[in-house]
Design a protein around this nucleic acid. Structure first.
Lengths: 223, 223
DNA sequence: GAATGTGAACTCCTTCACAGCA
DNA sequence: TGCTGTGAAGGAGTTCACATTC
């Protein structure tokens, strides 16, 4: 039919990218024993404006109480459900360089609803090595292993030159979501989502902003 | 008082964040011996639309030739200049966990106009260790060393709990640009810029998009 | 009284359509 | 003819103002 790939339930992309931040702020509240929180306080913790937060949450439905605030536990459940964190998603990391190793060993993923279950590398010297509790597999195993394990998200931590090949392999293994750390644009088929994290780009942008700007009076807002 | 927060020369923030991508695509062309490139081809390499690219470049002035395309070498010079990459910016990395170590050893920075010149960690066991050619310094050295070295950009790779303290220390050492990998919102004084890279958030967003979308009756609208 | 939820205004970004120039 | 540069239109996201509910 007509429709195009639409993010679930018409939630704006910009909102989706902030929901995880809210969720973490809420989990922080819960850990500290706080059971109720106002949009003002939660927004401050998340680094956004209260109206932004309320508008974002309104896309999920009304879950606050006027004159009172939000129930922390309930909102956590609501956000987790919206983000699809009922269970831990299996993740594969490809490329065991400095960054790949760090990601493979990063414990934060586990606590956030993700599970690194497979590691891959091209270098025969690295294959077989145990990193973060998993043996590194050769690239030839990528498609069969990723398929067998039902990998939901593939993380590309290879040099730029190999990124597209790895992406293609992941796609043919049924992976429909890719997190790309290689400084290269990926071309992917319809239905496969990717996000890119580019360290050098981030530094470039900061370098730009740090320049002896000046033109008129300026008032900046850090974000 | 007219001015609103102005990044240099009125270049839109969205454009600035794409300039590094164009720059890299151009450097790739240069390396392959290509001397002239059309907006169509360059845009494809950068993963954007040709009109987007042309509009972005128009903010820097007209540097293309109608009917022909862009001179690769000249555009590289133009972009490098706009991004302030005349010299290598000194960078400090704070927090020598898995990620911090990977960043400290990441050779990509050097080739992109940045130089990691100082490393810090709280753990006495780690202090003194040599990583990527630099001895890790104790936190007590952060302010004096960062000041002395004229650090331009500080990278925070500590756990969330320490991020704000580190940010405050960096600021008091004169650092005005911060790249934050800790999952926490920083509150910074006027004039200090920060960007956050949050690995778990990226995965969350992907998990959301990967969900068996669709709930009620679909929708139209391309996305 | 206090704080949420939301239409409407506003600002920012992207895309279109085409003018301008080699 | 071919491809860039750009005003104008269109869309997306944010902020405002205030009605709404406890």
């Amino acid at each position: 039919m007509v429709g195009a790939a639409v993010t679930r339930r018409d939630i704006p992309a910009a909102t989706v990218s902030r929901l995880p931040v809210y969720l973490r702020a809420l989990q922080d509240c819960a850990r500290r024993g706080v059971t109720r929180v106002s949009s003002e306080e939660l927004a401050a913790r998340a680094g956004v404006r209260p109206t932004q937060l309320r508008k974002d949450l309104s896309h999920l439905g009304s879950h606050g109480v006027r004159g009172v605030g939000y129930d922390v536990a309930r909102l956590i459940a609501e956000l987790s459900s919206a983000l699809g964190l009922h269970h831990a998603w299996p993740v594969a990391v490809v490329g065991m360089g400095n960054l790949g190793r760090a990601l493979a060993a990063y414990s934060g993923f586990a606590t956030e609803g993700f599970h690194v279950v497979a590691l891959f590398d091209r270098d025969p010297e690295v294959v077989g090595e145990i990193i973060g509790g998993h043996a590194v597999l050769p690239m030839s195993e990528l498609v069969p292993a990723a398929t067998r394990l039902g990998i939901a998200i593939g993380v590309i931590a290879t040099p730029a030159g190999s990124a597209q090949d790895v992406a293609d392999a992941l796609v043919s293994a049924g992976v429909r979501a890719i997190l790309n750390f290689a400084p290269a644009a990926l071309s992917l088929p319809e239905g496969v989502t990717s996000r890119s994290v580019d360290l050098a780009t981030e530094l470039h942008v900061l370098a730009f902003m740090r320049q002896p700007e000046r033109v008129g009076t300026d008032v900046g807002r850090a974000g």
